[in-house]
Amino acid sequence: MAKITYIEHGGRQHVVEVPNGQSVMEGAVKNNVPGIDADCGGACACATCHVFVDESWLAKSGDKSSMEESMLDFASEVQPNSRLSCQIKVSDALDGLIVRLPASQH
């Protein structure tokens, strides 16, 4: 279980407890956090679950696969800390994680 803080583009914060094994994307969608569309449901097929990982959590959130990296190439406003949240698996090590959401996923 990890407590994750999602910060909407407008600044509104949502703190959600997400079970281990689920993705950061699922934590948002299943708790009605707006700003992550996740159209494909986590299949790494659509690039609509883009988040910015807080710098202090970058190392712990793991490496991007080459597939994720290629998908992000086509997302808008991509930053070095951009991730697809369906590809970040939740574990105790991510307790306290902070992610920020982009203005739009499309």
Partner: peptide, 30 residues
């Protein structure tokens, strides 16, 4: 979600809770 039915759900990697688009409780909440 139907797509995982012939993929992760059939393989047993996902349970019913992950299949649901949103938890059943969300509908009442909204």
């Amino acid at each position: 979600q139907r797509p995982p039915l012939s993929k992760k759900y059939l393989a047993g990697e996902w349970g019913e809770d992950r299949l649901l688009l949103r938890p059943a409780s969300v509908y009442a909440d909204e």
